[in-house]
Design a protein around this nucleic acid. Structure first.
Lengths: 121, 121
DNA sequence: GCTCAATATTCGTTCTAGGGTATGTTTCCA
DNA sequence: TGGAAACATACCCTAGAACGAATATTGAGC
């Protein structure tokens, strides 16, 4: 019932202050969960880059990960403190229509061979 | 009617990611306006330190300043974009009862010779 | 004019976050 | 058991942020 994590405000804002991390979080707000290769493809960065920033989000407790075969799926933590969830929502509502966040989602939608997405031709 | 400033999300979060700047903003959310010496006293830092960080908040458009004699009074900008104001409010509500923000306000309340505050003994 | 108070800025230094690349780990499959 | 795919981590290096201290600016008062 209680949030499982405690997040210092300056830590939260430092996490959101980096464009790669913010873009990942915005994508993860649009979608229930995404794997690293999807985030990497959507953002257009190299895999270690995305992986490193996802690790920071994970260490802070903003996202959780689960393994399924070769893929590791990330999602926004379901046990965020209320005010953190509120900040994320406000931010998402404000920027989801702006660049580069719209493009990220467009690029993701056109990604071929996405894991978890059935390939019904 | 329209917000006078445009603030990039990463810029906002970078500003909030520094404790000095966040403490100033929280104090300025509690009080309509405060001068530099009040903020300096409340936070317990040296004057150039506070001044430098206030300058960053001002350049971003998060706060405005007005001169009155020797003092320069800062206040939270009245023309913030809605989502920025919402993020600030959520953050304030979440942390205003925590350290070091409560102590900052206590120290400020006990400050002698505050400008603008009538000295009715 | 001079002096003091409040604030801002500059300068040189230190420190940490981030980038690029290479390599390690885990899992699946043949 | 060997290889390939997906992801994580380590290493070295660099650029930018922040600090401390000194100095500049602005305004009030005499």
């Amino acid at each position: 019932m209680f949030p499982a994590v405690t997040i210092q405000p300056t830590d939260l804002f430092a996490a959101l202050a980096h464009e790669t991390r913010l873009r990942c979080l915005i994508l993860l707000t649009r979608h229930p969960e995404l794997c690293v290769c999807e985030l990497t493809h959507a953002i257009g960065a190299v895999q270690p880059h995305v992986s490193r920033h996802l690790a920071q989000l994970r260490e802070l407790g903003l996202v959780t990960d689960r393994r399924e075969g070769l893929w590791i799926f990330y999602r926004v933590s379901p046990v965020l403190p209320d005010w953190v969830a509120a900040v994320l929502r406000e931010t998402f509502d404000a920027v989801c229509g702006e660049r580069p966040f719209v493009e990220d989602d467009r690029v993701l939608a056109q990604m071929p061979n996405r894991p978890g997405v059935p390939r019904c031709a």
